[in-house]
């Protein structure tokens, strides 16, 4: 990871990657111990865990970009909601070809993200505020286009009766598993987006600009980084990933729920931070986010297969988040 190169003083033992990996190993060992009659030892359990975290992971990809610039994006869950509703509307009600539906959804996500980015950079408004506004606005938009109801394969006719249409093939494909049922398509989509983010951060000039802005915005500006444009791009990319997540969510639920993605922003932020990317910006990486995604994913899975009650689940999750972040804290 880039941290290794950035801080030559710290040994590999104290690098964020090692620490996040350590936390993941601990969670994994807990799973091996509390394996719920061997359920944890089956590949299917891991495959299902990866499916369940993929949507969150997609949000976390965009969130990582934004957090590296020193910002935050609270609107990811709501943009996911709009995307899920629009995708279902386009595919089920309008019967659009899947590629047009996908492209339009991606554009909607991109536009929502870019709007947040523009408000932040043009009017110099705190990312927290601007994306909070987008969070509320986008949720409203999702409810408005769906009429507050889930867009499902039960299509209401003019006379109030329902006609049941078959679910679109693209839904079934995204909801399926490939490689002899060994990996979910949504997981593959997540991994592809993760790879794109990794290349963007590590190989492209854009990636270096994102770190530069997060490290010291004024210095970046003075050294010729087009700060405003890059910021807009970061939020637009986040919106784009949210749209992908929305498409995956709708396909998995076989419907577009206007409430989809509610409070998902908190999970996405938690995944990024537990991985070791700091909220102050300028440091971190997508590899860390992957570790954060896996830590939370495994944690939830272990609690779930052991049928731990909701009350204890929340307390344990809170405690483990603190534990993982403490593990990340650098010793002076």
């Amino acid at each position: 990871m880039s941290q290794l190169l950035k801080s030559p003083k710290s040994s590999w033992l104290t690098s964020p990657t090692t620490r996040a990996l350590g936390a993941l190993v601990i969670v994994f060992v807990i799973g091996l111990i509390f394996n719920a009659d061997g359920a944890f030892l089956k590949w299917g359990t891991h495959r299902d865990m990866l499916r369940a975290v993929s949507v969150y992971g997609l949000l976390a990809c965009g969130m990582t970009l934004v957090i590296i610039t020193g910002g935050i994006d609270l609107s990811v869950g709501s943009i996911l909601g709009i995307s899920a509703v629009s995708f279902s509307l386009f595919c089920i009600h309008f019967s659009w070809p899947f590629y047009i539906a996908i492209i339009v959804c991606l554009l909607i996500g991109l536009a929502c993200g870019a709007a947040s980015g523009l408000i932040i950079s043009r009017f110099n408004i705190q990312p927290f505020i601007a994306t909070l506004a987008m969070m509320v606005f986008a949720r409203g938009l999702a409810k408005w286009i769906s009429g507050g109801q889930k867009i499902s394969t039960a299509v209401q006719q003019a006379d109030g009766t329902y006609e049941y249409v078959p679910e679109p093939a693209v839904f079934n494909f995204i909801n399926s598993k490939i490689l002899w049922d060994n990996i979910s398509v949504v997981t593959v989509i997540f991994l592809v987006c993760l790879l794109i983010t990794a290349i963007l951060l590590a190989k492209l000039r854009l990636g270096r600009y994102l770190y530069a802005i997060g490290g010291n915005e004024e210095a970046a500006r003075l050294s010729g980084v087009p700060v405003n444009a890059i910021k807009v791009l970061a939020y637009a990319m986040s919106g784009l990933f949210c749209a992908v997540a929305g498409i995956c969510q709708a396909s998995q639920e076989l419907q577009g729920d206007p409430e989809a993605g509610f409070t998902y922003e908190l999970s996405a932020i938690a995944m990024v931070v537990i991985g070791g990317t700091t909220l102050r910006g300028g440091r971190g990486g997508i590899g860390l986010t992957l570790l954060g995604v896996l830590i939370i994913g495994y944690l939830e899975k272990i609690l779930s297969i052991n049928a731990v009650g909701e009350d204890k689940r929340l307390m344990l999750t809170g405690a483990i988040i603190v534990g993982a972040v403490l593990l990340q804290k650098t010793k002076k």
């Binding site: 719920a36 009659d37 359920a39 089956k42 299917g44 359990t45 299902d48 499916r51 369940a52 998995q252 939830e300 899975k301 779930s304 297969i305 049928a307």
Partner: peptide, 11 residues
């Protein structure tokens, strides 16, 4: 519900 059911199916 889907997540929880996956866990139940695994067990």
């Amino acid at each position: 519900a889907r997540k929880e059911m996956e866990s139940a199916l695994a067990r």
